[in-house]
């Protein structure tokens, strides 16, 4: 792809991701409505899609208030950080064989780095608010990220091991015969959970935890700054879905249909699955969250790593023999 093409695609990608996230706010609510035997927002436009515009208008026209007791700069900076980090994460996602912004040989590490950056946003937002709920939310978020970040990276190492590359395109190509969701089922499971926790969506939304912490780290946020946090969350959701598609479900690979469509379909199915999780599973207690992370997920990931390593060695050995 030419320079110009890349830039154009990058801009389009940003527009698509942000637009997708916006539509997702409505889509998620409709989907939750269906699963909870109610209607959801269905008043504006066909199927209520106008709700997206209405919400946007509402958020845009809200008073852009910065609490006088907050750390002003950090308070404003925090919500932008999450959006930027998440959008950068999209750069390495290969949507189709020739459709990507960046193909670097450490694409996977880049993605992990970007998602890790997002925690700063939450943590700083919580601290800068100078509010006890926000602070608690921020602290929870930090602890949660540290705990789940550990095995998030490790859970992907099986994929890397099997592929022998950090390049996401290479990983997709390596799945022509068999999607990694089969040999790496443990990896998929742990990454899935880590992914939800990273994007702190239900059931792992302890940093927000409306019932306990009002709105957690973004208690003091309103208007567009609040919208940025929401945008970040939905971008994260899309990004994680994209990554799972890429890493475990063969990315763009698929018969008959164009590769991009395959990629989008798989991603869409995963997004629906995430919404289902939100609609079905209640939030764990904080200690349960930690127990799950350290006592089950981490050992499981390590087990996966050992098994995958053994498998890889075995396969290697067979090839040599």
């Amino acid at each position: 792809m030419s320079e110009l093409g890349t830039v154009t695609f990058g801009l389009l990608l940003i527009a698509a991701a942000v637009g997708g996230a916006a539509v997702l706010t409505w889509f998620e609510r409709r989907l939750l409505g269906i699963w909870q035997d109610r209607y959801g927002p269905d008043r504006l436009g066909p199927l209520g899609i106008g709700q997206v515009v209405a919400d946007m208008l509402k958020l845009l026209t809200k008073d852009d208030w910065v609490p006088p007791f907050s750390d002003r700069f950090v308070f404003v900076f925090a919500p932008t950080a999450i959006v930027v980090a998440m959008l950068l994460g999209f750069a390495v996602v290969p949507f189709a064989p020739q459709l990507y912004v960046l193909d670097i040989n450490i694409g996977l590490l880049f993605f992990l780095g970007m998602t890790s950056l997002a925690v700063y946003s939450v943590l700083l937002g919580g601290l800068a608010s100078n509010n006890k709920y926000a602070l608690l939310g921020g602290l929870r978020s930090a602890a949660q990220m540290v705990s789940y970040e550990v095995f998030m990276g490790l859970s992907l190492m099986g994929v890397v091991m099997l592929t022998g590359s950090f390049s996401l395109r290479a990983i997709v190509e390596a799945q022509r015969d068999l999607w990694y969701c089969v040999p790496q089922v443990l990896g998929l499971f742990t990454f899935l959970i880590a992914g939800i926790a990273e994007s702190h969506r239900l059931p792992f939304d302890l940093p927000e935890a409306e019932h306990e912490l009002t709105a957690g780290f973004h208690t003091e946020y309103g208007g567009m700054k609040f919208a940025m946090f929401m945008l970040g969350e939905y971008l994260g959701l899309i990004l994680i879905s994209c990554m799972i598609t890429t890493l475990f479900f063969g990315g763009w690979l698929g018969p008959w249909l164009p590769p991009l469509l395959w990629f989008c379909l798989k991603t869409f199915a995963l997004i629906c699955f995430f919404v289902l999780l939100r609609g079905a599973i209640p939030r764990p207690r904080y200690d349960q969250l930690m127990t799950l992370g350290w006592k089950y997920m981490l050992p499981l990931t390590l087990l996966n790593l050992v098994l995958t390593g053994a498998l890889a060695l075995l396969l290697e050995g067979q090839r040599h023999v």
Partner: peptide
């Protein structure tokens, strides 16, 4: 139990809305 929950909720895709417009 978690998976059963997911399945149960998924089945609600085809149940009627209890609320009325």
């Amino acid at each position: 139990s978690q998976l059963r929950t997911l399945w149960t909720i998924l089945q609600h895709t085809f149940s009627r809305a209890e609320t009325v417009p």
